[in-house]
Design a protein around this nucleic acid. Structure first.
Lengths: 249, 249
DNA sequence: CGAACGTTTGAACGATGTCAAGCGGGGTGG
DNA sequence: CCACCCCGCTTGACATCGTTCAAACGTTCG
């Protein structure tokens, strides 16, 4: 599942103009406290898009003129190192906002790509700025999203992408299952695993392959299907599941 | 430099009541756009504190009723894993705000400790909330700080705490020097290095020791003194300075 | 002066990254 | 519609790196 070349223009995947009222009904959690009807839909259209799995959505450094609410599917955000290498920095899921940095910067500082097929709404920053003055709760909403993003990043770094390599892969599976719930756990390419965990793709491949031959995991239709308890058990049985970490503090 | 036991009460380190006007003069960058005189100093006192190196300042889970601006010194923030292990998640420096999460949560979600002697101002959240309504730029200021914190965390995880263990230690030294500038590079305990980089303290110790015997680094008065160029050079000469990372994306 | 703790250092095993070759699937073009 | 090709996955062999374990040293603090 490699990344597809960038669309010359997002409009290729434009589905239509959104009716925010209806969206609010369906996705109670999205900007829950927000009265989206306050958006001046005449001048600032909210459109929704569907991207196929693997599609690049944002490129690091792109001019940032909108944020996106994720209505369905999973997204990865990554950065490109000076040497050309790639590191995946976080995952986003339905209910998350993609591209928050657009609200205080003029360019995206991470690339974004669809891990699965994705459905999202594009909100021009002008629309948000407009709401900011009329909707006082929006400020708290945004603040909570920043905080949540940071906390998730911290947790991922310490609880998933740390410890012995093989353990990291297992922890990633556990994380993915919980992260995706109630949606099924999306399958992730070995290379993406490697880029998330800082392990070699060979190691990622080996661990997954071993789980498969042990009958504990299967991969069908771009889904990982496995028994969470078994993975937990393997992790627990693992010699020092990732802690030469000092206990005393 | 282990962590000192928690102070029963911060007031032990209370230096006095602050005059925000004078503080603003000295630290142009702190909440630069902010008119701190708008704080009602009668009811909501701003006090400043000095902590010795090693002192624990905040404990994960503590009730969060204030943020702190860092006027001098360096601070680490860490989380305690379920198994009791410790992972240092980020560093803060003069000009940073400690405990931003207090503004949208009722408890701190990371512990904080002084890496060096530290001087900070305590701002009750009530004071900030008060300013929020009178000072419209404060919202943007806070948003920028969240964004910055996240970007720094991303960068640290990908550019410092990744790659071969020995390279991580070197990258940490490079990072520290740049991070601390123009202040001198503070020395960091091998255990803290280990907790930041997810390597063993033995490895951290070995790399530092080797640099010392090579005459490239010395540790005096809780300072690392070394030639940045030499460390860069070592890193460059390092076999694959941390990239089995895929190039193509 | 003793105890506690962190650092240093050695030795050895195990884990993991690198390299390389073979396989398989999906997409493209004939 | 089929064949080929490209790319990612798999898998083995191997060398190296890094963790673990353990012991000794030094320093700080009581």
């Amino acid at each position: 599942m490699s990344d597809v070349e960038p669309a010359p223009c997002l409009s290729e995947f434009l589905m239509g103009r959104m009716d925010c009222r209806r969206c609010g009904e369906r996705n109670g959690k999205l900007f829950s406290s927000l009265n989206v009807q306050a958006i001046d839909h005449r001048s600032l259209a909210v459109h929704d898009y569907e991207f196929p799995s693997g599609m690049r959505i944002l490129r690091q450094g792109d001019p940032a003129d909108a944020i996106f609410t994720i209505r369905a599917g999973f997204i990865k955000r990554w950065l490109t190192l000076p040497d050309g290498g790639v590191r995946i920095v976080r995952l986003l899921r339905p209910g998350d906002v993609l591209g928050l940095e657009a609200l205080s910067q003029r360019s995206y500082d991470l690339s974004a790509g669809a891990i699965t097929a994705v459905h999202l709404c594009r909100l021009p920053i002008e629309a948000i700025e407009q709401l900011r003055v009329t909707q006082p709760n929006l400020v708290a909403e945004l603040e909570a999203r920043w905080r949540d993003l940071l906390a998730r990043t911290d947790r991922f770094a310490t609880m998933v992408a740390a410890g012995p390599s093989r353990a990291r892969v297992l922890k990633l599976l556990r994380y993915l299952a919980q992260f995706a719930a109630p949606a099924p756990c999306p399958s992730v390419s070995r290379q993406d695993m490697a880029a998330m965990l800082d392990v070699s793709s060979a190691t990622a491949s080996r661990v997954v392959a071993e789980l498969k031959t042990a009958g504990l995991l299967r991969e069908r239709r771009h889904r990982f299907e496995f028994d969470l308890a078994s993975v937990e058990q393997l992790l627990a049985a693992m010699p020092r599941s990732g802690s030469q970490s000092r206990k005393k503090v």
